[in-house]
Measured scan of single mutants.
Amino acid sequence: MAEAPPRRLGLGPPPGDAPRAELVALTAVQSEQGEAGGGGSPRRLGLLGSPLPPGAPLPGPGSGSGSACGQRSSAAHKRYRRLQNWVYNVLERPRGWAFVYHVFIFLLVFSCLVLSVLSTIQEHQELANECLLILEFVMIVVFGLEYIVRVWSAGCCCRYRGWQGRFRFARKPFCVIDFIVFVASVAVIAAGTQGNIFATSALRSMRFLQILRMVRMDRRGGTWKLLGSVVYAHSKELITAWYIGFLVLIFASFLVYLAEKDANSDFSSYADSLWWGTITLTTIGYGDKTPHTWLGRVLAAGFALLGISFFALPAGILGSGFALKVQEQHRQKHFEKRRMPAANLIQAAWRLYSTDMSRAYLTATWYYYDSILPSFRELALLFEHVQRARNGGLRPLEVRRAPVPDGAPSRYPPVATCHRPGSTSFCPGESSRMGIKDRIRMGSSQRRTGPSKQHLAPPTMPTSPSSEQVGEATSPTKVQKSWSFNDRTRFRASLRLKPRTSAEDAPSEEVA
């Protein structure tokens, strides 16, 4: 009796068929016929556990003709996506030579605008209408194809895939403007070719909807975003200037109206006075309405000098805001240009540092100066060695804690006790272990408590650290204090090793 083939788990290929790579489910599931010992083939499952149809090819690079078809379809799909992405970037994010197409579109729109203006002049109306009709045909074809291509290429973005995504893309403001202008152009052409009475009025009214094509030149909205950011950044200043200017306008108009309503027919109503105030304070000055009385002229002159300053403030605020924003954008561009080279330089330096163990090129690091100058660790070890030599091999803490019996001779020589300023008595072995921070803190506390006492003391002649007598400086308080830590004499004296002298005989010792 033939044995059933062993159940295979995992992703390994079956024996005897090495080139074939078959994806098997996580659990080997066989058909009921196979479990019962029949000759049925096992049921194939996909990666998600769903059964595959009987005629479906197995996924994998070596699955025969199905694999070749899959490779061809995958390559075609990649080319399709690449083309779609390229078209989308050309239309929505132009760079380099892609601006040539947008310059061509701008020339078409500008020519249409010029011809629309010439069509309103009686001398050039006939020729402009003929040229404009031909140009409209060209623009309908160009913009119609462009609109379709834009909607198709938007599928390269995830949020615009599918018919719902394309509809979302078509609802964008600039796409809506394109659609309105396209419909208006078709209506103008249809009305112009019919030759009816309505054609002339339709051409004159709907052609100027094509002015909206100038708005579509900035599809990404960079200028509007820049203007919005400047207004938002200086909103408080703008609101303040406009508010005060509006108050000056209504008060000036009302007072001039009261002064001129009886003697001047131009100011017969408050609305006429508001019109005069707006034209005057905005420095336009049509001259259609002028005050005639001396009181009205004085009020107009005073409020004009006051109001023009507030009406001119928004222009200066926006101008300075634009300058600052442009400078910030230039700085951001320079930062973006330098970020990648800086990151590459840091990575290269780290690779060199991690692979080169000698690091002989590091001549400006802490390790280099640590090898030249005595390190703080060596100074600490030197302090501890000196203290243990004086205390008979014991550390200062051990000397303080060691009990001394009554009447027993002390094995240590008597030492002079010292007192730290602002604290109780402490171990004499710690007097010379006072660090730089303690010395600086002690000097600052003395300056806070009594700076007036220092200038009363007789001035001391500054001497070099080499000429100081070591026996005289029994305490860190003898170090000359200065008002600034930048004094080199104080810094050098604080680094010197001060020996400890006994109370009975204080021989001067120098520590090399």
Rank of each mutant, 00 (worst) to 15 (best):
V109L: 06
Y232N: 15
L113V: 14
L249V: 07
I177S: 10
E136V: 09
Q210K: 01
N196Y: 13
C156W: 09
S269C: 13
F310V: 08
Y243H: 12
V188L: 02
K236T: 13
F208C: 11
F106Y: 11
G221C: 10
N196T: 08
R204C: 11
A271S: 02
L133R: 00
V181A: 12
P173S: 10
T290S: 11
I197F: 01
I211T: 05
R220C: 10
K172E: 15
L115P: 04
P173T: 07
Y257F: 14
G192D: 08
F106L: 15
A271T: 07
K172Q: 14
G228R: 14
V215G: 02
K225T: 05
D178Y: 07
I189N: 08
R219L: 03
F198I: 09
V231F: 08
D178E: 03
M214T: 00
T223S: 05
D178H: 08
S253T: 04
K225E: 13
K225N: 09
C175F: 06
A191E: 04
M206T: 11
T240P: 06
R213C: 01
F143Y: 14
T120I: 06
V109I: 03
Q125H: 11
L203P: 13
I211V: 02
D218G: 02
R219H: 09
T193P: 13
G221S: 10
T278M: 10
K325M: 05
V188F: 03
L238M: 07
L133P: 00
C175Y: 08
L209P: 12
V188D: 04
A184V: 08
F251Y: 15
R219G: 14
L209Q: 12
S201A: 05
L212Q: 01
I177N: 15
I239S: 04
A184D: 10
M217T: 11
R213S: 12
W294C: 05
T223P: 00
F254S: 15
K236R: 07
F310S: 06
R213H: 00
L133F: 03
I197L: 06
M206V: 04
I180M: 08
E136G: 15
C175R: 00
S201F: 01
L132R: 02
V188G: 12
D178A: 02
L133V: 04
F208Y: 14
L113R: 13
R213G: 06
A271G: 06
F208S: 04
V149F: 11
N196S: 13
Q210E: 14
E136A: 12
F110Y: 09
K225Q: 09
L108P: 01
L107F: 10
E136Q: 05
M214V: 00
L133H: 15
L133I: 02
T223I: 03
I211S: 03
H102P: 13
A191S: 05
I105L: 07
R216H: 00
K333E: 12
W224L: 03
V181G: 09
S116C: 02
Q194P: 01
R216C: 01
G245W: 07
